[in-house]
Design a protein around this nucleic acid. Structure first.
Length: 788
DNA sequence: TCAGCCGAAGTTTTT
DNA sequence: CTTCGGCTGA
C-alpha cells in the first residue's frame, strides 16, 4: 500500500493552497456544462449537502464534476476524498469519468470504492483491534452458509425447522442494523431468536478462529473500531476531508452510523440519492436515512436535480403521476425539454404466453422499422420484470422465434460453482490453512472421500490443533483411511504441497500454475467428461478465470482483490434484447422498455404486501417508478388476465398501479383479437371506484364471450409472425432429419421429433420437448468437436 | 459413497 | 411445473 494513501497527522495532510488551480477552476469550462441545480451541487463544497437527484437528471455528472472541482480548486488531494458507492460498477464509472474530466492527469482515487472495499482496506490496517490478522479472508454467501450449517449440526438443531439460510438472513439483518451479538436488543429475541443470538455469537467466534469475515463484518468491525478507539476514528476524520455518498437512499443503519461518525467533525458530506428510487428496503436499506438528512445535519443544503435528460414528457408524467400515491416523499418535480413523443402504451392480454408472443412481435416490428417508426436496434430494447421467473415465458418465446436476447442477472461470474471450486484450489495453493476451501474441494472431483472420510480428517485435525490439510496428511501417514479414499487423498495432499511449493518458488508464472492446478487436480477433466448441457459453458468460464488472472501479479494478489468483485462482465457481441429484473435495471436506460406482468399479486408482489404492508406496497410502487423511468422514448406496460403459476392457471386483476397512471399520458392499445377495445374505454374518474373499475375490466377478460372471441381470434392474429418465418424458410435449407441427435447450447442433447420449415421440435434428454429454430442447434456428433 | 427418488417450496440482490 | 435438498437403497 502506498504511503500516499495512509492517513497522516493533520498537519502534513494539509494540501498547499493551489491558488493558480483555484483561479483556473473559477472560470472552468466544466462548470458551464452544468444546469443551475447541478452547478449549485458542484460548487457547494463545504458543509453538508443532500443532492436529491431524480432519475436521469445527470447525477453522476454532478457527482464527478464535484470531485473534479474539489481537486481543481485545491480544496484537497485525491486521497483525502472518501467516496462510497454500492457497486463496483458505479465506483468504476466514477473513476473513469473523473479521469476524463481531469485529463487523465489525476492519479487514482484510493478511497473511492464500494462500502465493502473501502472497509476491507481499512480493516486490513486495524484488524488486530477486533482480534483478526490483517490477512483475514472474506467469505462469501456460500462459505457463510456452510459454516452456519456446521454450527447448526453442532448445536443439534433440526435444519429443517431452522434452515441455515434463514439464520444467515437473520444474522445479516442484525449486522445491517449494526447489532453485534451483545447488542441485539432483548425485545428482538423471541423464543426463536434467543437461540439465534447464541448462534450468532458462536458464528462470530468461529469466524475469528478462521481469521475470516463475512460481508457484513467488513463494515461492522470497522464501526466497532471507530466506536471503541477514538484515536483511530479521529485519525480518519482528519484524513477524509470530504465525503461523498452515492445512492444514499440505499444505505442501511450500519452504513449510516459509519458515515455519521466519519463526517461528524467537519460535516463535509455530500449524499446523493433519490427517495423515490429506494427499492432495497428488504435487504436493510432505510429510506429514513435520506428523509432524515436535514435533521442529522442541521443547516444542510438540499439541492434538487429535476431536469431530466432521459425520457419524453409523457413517460415522465406517467411515472410522476404514479409516484405521487406514495406518502412521506421529499418530493421532486421532474421536467424536460424533450419533444412530446409517444404516450406510455398499455395493453392487456389473455394470458402470459400471449403477452410474450405480442411483445416478441412488437420487438421484431420495431427492429424492422415498420409502422413508420425508425428501425431500432435490439440493444436499445429491454424487458423489465418483477421476478426472474417471469423471464422464462420470454426466453421460451424468443428461442422459438429466433430472437436474440441476453439475460442480465442470475449467478454472477465469481459465484458460479466452477469458479468457486477453482478459487478454492487456488486458495489452498496459497495457504494450506484455508479449511473452508479444503472442505469444498476435498471430494470435487469425486475422490471417494465422503462425509465419513471428511469427519475422520476433521477429527485428526482437531485432536492435534492442525489445519484440515495437515489433518489429512496425518490420516494418510497413519493410514486412518483405506482403499480408494486413502490413495486419492494422498495424491491430493501431495498435489497441494507441490502447488504450494510452486507459489513460494514462483518457478512458473501464476497463470501457468493455475492451469496446472486445474489439470493435475482432475478438475478440468471432470467437466470435460460431463455431458450435461452446462458443462461446455463451465469450461469456458474456467478459461475466463485463467484469463482474468493475467491482470494480476500473482495468485495472492488475485485472491485478495477478487472476493469483493462480483461482476459479470461478459462482452457478448451481436444485437440482443435485454431481459432483466426491475431491480437490476436501476441506473440503466433504454430507448424502448417493456414492462410486462402488471397484475395485482405479481406486481405489486403479494408477498411484499403481506410482509411489509403499506411500506411494502410503497416500495413496489417505487419499483414501478424505476421501471417507467428507464424508458427514453417508448414505454409499454402490459398485463395478462391469466397466468400459469406453479403449473396452475390463475387469473388476476390488472395491477392497482395501472389505475394510478394518469390517463392523459396513457394510450390504451387494443389487445389482439379484441374488437372495439373493451378495456380502459371508460374514464375511472366518474362513477365506479378504481377498484370496481379494475374488477369490471377484469370481468371483460373473464367473461365466457371474451374467452370465446379470444380463442377464435388467436390463430389469425399470430399469422403474420408465421408468415414472416415462412419466408425465411424458403431460403434456409434445414439439413436436419427427424430422429437425428442434436445439441443445443442451452438445452443440451436431444433428438428431433418433428421438422416444420426451420423450426424443429426436439425432445431434449434433460430439458423436455421444445420448439427451437434450427440455427440454434448443431448435430450431436459435431458438438463434441466444438472447441470449448 | 453416491445415484436416484421423493417431498416441499417457490421475490427482489450487492458485496 | 420446476428445482433443490434430503433421504434411502444398492
Amino acid at each position: 500500500m502506498s504511503s500516499d494513501e495512509a492517513p497522516m497527522p493533520a498537519s502534513s495532510a494539509q494540501p498547499a493552497p493551489l491558488s493558480q488551480q483555484a483561479m483556473a477552476a473559477r472560470g472552468a469550462p466544466y462548470l458551464d456544462d452544468l444546469n443551475p441545480a447541478q452547478r449549485e451541487a458542484v460548487e457547494a463544497l463545504d458543509g453538508p449537502v443532500l443532492m436529491l437527484a431524480g432519475a436521469g437528471t445527470g447525477k453522476t455528472k454532478a457527482l464527478t464534476t464535484r470531485i473534479g472541482h474539489l481537486l481543481l480548486t485545491g480544496k484537497c488531494r485525491t486521497n483525502e476524498i472518501l467516496g462510497v458507492t454500492f457497486t463496483n460498477k458505479a465506483a468504476r464509472e466514477m473513476k473513469t469519468r473523473i479521469g476524463r474530466l481531469m485529463g487523465e492527469a489525476v492519479e487514482g482515487m484510493p478511497w473511492l470504492g464500494t462500502f465493502h472495499s473501502v472497509n476491507a482496506k481499512l480493516l486490513r490496517r486495524h484488524a488486530e483491534l477486533v482480534g483478526l490478522k490483517s490477512s483475514f479472508t472474506i467469505l462469501d454467501t456460500d462459505d457463510q452458509l456452510r459454516l452456519l450449517k456446521q454450527l447448526l449440526v453442532a448445536n443439534n438443531i433440526d435444519d429443517k425447522r431452522w434452515p441455515a439460510r434463514m439464520l444467515a438472513g437473520i444474522i445479516d439483518n442484525w449486522k445491517n442494523r449494526a447489532w453485534t451479538p451483545e447488542k441485539v436488543p432483548a425485545g428482538e429475541a423471541s423464543a426463536f431468536d434467543r437461540r439465534g443470538v447464541e448462534l450468532y455469537a458462536q458464528y462470530q467466534a468461529r469466524l475469528r478462529d478462521l481469521n475470516a469475515v463475512d460481508f457484513g463484518d467488513l463494515l461492522l468491525h470497522m464501526l466497532t473500531i471507530f466506536q471503541e478507539h477514538e484515536d483511530v476514528l479521529a485519525q480518519y476524520q482528519r484524513w477524509f476531508r470530504y465525503i461523498l455518498v452515492d445512492e444514499y437512499q440505499d444505505t442501511n443503519v450500519a452504513q449510516y452510523l459509519w458515515l455519521r461518525l466519519l463526517a461528524q467533525s467537519h460535516k463535509n458530506i455530500c449524499c446523493v440519492g433519490d427517495d423515490d428510487q429506494s427499492i432495497y428496503g428488504w435487504r436493510g436499506a432505510e429510506v429514513g436515512n435520506i428523509l432524515r438528512f436535514e435533521k442529522d445535519f442541521p443547516g444542510a443544503k438540499v439541492i434538487r436535480l429535476e431536469q431530466n435528460y432521459r425520457s419524453t414528457p409523457h413517460i415522465l408524467a406517467a411515472a410522476s403521476g404514479l409516484i405521487t400515491a406514495n406518502k412521506g416523499r421529499l418530493g421532486k418535480t421532474l421536467w424536460t425539454d424533450a419533444e412530446e413523443g409517444e404516450k406510455v402504451r398499455l395493453i392487456g392480454h389473455w394470458d402470459g404466453e400471449e403477452e410474450a408472443r405480442w411483445i416478441g412481435e412488437e420487438i421484431e416490428a420495431m427492429q424492422g422499422g415498420t409502422r413508420g417508426l425508425a428501425p431500432m436496434s435490439l440493444d436499445h430494447m429491454a424487458i423489465l420484470v418483477r421476478a426472474s421467473h417471469q423471464m422464462r415465458a420470454f426466453e421460451d418465446r424468443f428461442l422459438t422465434i429466433g430472437l436474440n436476447y441476453r439475460v442480465i442477472g442470475g449467478p454472477r461470474f465469481y459465484e458460479r460453482m466452477e469458479i468457486r471450486d477453482a478459487m478454492a484450489y487456488f486458495r489452498l495453493a496459497v495457504s494450506q490453512e484455508d479449511d473452508l476451501a479444503f472442505e469444498r474441494i476435498v471430494n470435487t472431483p469425486k475422490r471417494g472421500l465422503g462425509d465419513k472420510a471428511v469427519q475422520t480428517i476433521q477429527r485428526a485435525a482437531r485432536e492435534h490443533g492442525l489445519s484440515l490439510v495437515e489433518g489429512a496428511r496425518l490420516c494418510v501417514d497413519e493410514g486412518r483411511l483405506s482403499g480408494k479414499g486413502l490413495k486419492e487423498l494422498r495424491t491430493l495432499v501431495q498435489g497441494l504441497d507441490r502447488w504450494h511449493g510452486q507459489v513460494i518458488s514462483e518457478a512458473d508464472t501464476h497463470v501457468e500454475l493455475a492451469e496446472m492446478i486445474l489439470d493435475e487436480s482432475g478438475y478440468t477433466a471432470m467437466w470435460q467428461n460431463d455431458k450435461t448441457p452446462e458443462a461446455p459453458g463451465r469450461l469456458e468460464n474456467l478459461k475466463e478465470l485463467v484469463k482474468a488472472l493475467e491482470e494480476f501479479e500473482n495468485l495472492q494478489g488475485f485472491l485478495e482483490h477478487i472476493a469483493l468483485i462480483m461482476d459479470n462482465e461478459s462482452e457478448e457481441q451481436g444485437e440482443k434484447v435485454t431481459l432483466m429484473t426491475l431491480h437490476a435495471a436501476k441506473g440503466l436506460e433504454f430507448p424502448a422498455v417493456f414492462l410486462p406482468g402488471w397484475e395485482d399479486g405479481l406486481f405489486p408482489s403479494q408477498r411484499s404486501m403481506d410482509e411489509s404492508g403499506l411500506k411494502g406496497l410503497e416500495e413496489e410502487r417505487r419499483l414501478a417508478y424505476v421501471g417507467i423511468t428507464r424508458a427514453e422514448k417508448l414505454c409499454t406496460i402490459s398485463f395478462a388476465g391469466n397466468r400459469r403459476v406453479y403449473g396452475q392457471w390463475q387469473s388476476a386483476l390488472p395491477s392497482r398501479f395501472i389505475d394510478e397512471l394518469p390517463q392523459e399520458h396513457i394510450e390504451v392499445l387494443t389487445p389482439p383479437g379484441l374488437y372495439g377495445g373493451g378495456f380502459g374505454a371508460a374514464a375511472p374518474s366518474a362513477g365506479p371506484s378504481a377498484v370496481q373499475e379494475r374488477a369490471m375490466r377484469a370481468d371483460v377478460y373473464n367473461s365466457p364471450g371474451w374467452k370465446r372471441m379470444q380463442s377464435r381470434q388467436q390463430r389469425p392474429v399470430s399469422q403474420p409472425a408465421e408468415a414472416r418465418n415462412m419466408t425465411i424458410d424458403l431460403e434456409a435449407t434445414s439439413s436436419f432429419t427427424t430422429g437425428e441427435r442434436v445439441f443445443h447450447k442451452k438445452f443440451g442433447y436431444g433428438a428431433i421429433t418433428a421438422i416444420e420449415g426451420d423450426k424443429l421440435e426436439i425432445a431434449f434428454d434433460k430439458a423436455g420437448v421444445k420448439n427451437v429454430v434450427s440455427r440454434f442447434v448443431v448435430a450431436a456428433d459435431l458438438a463434441d468437436d466444438i472447441p470449448f
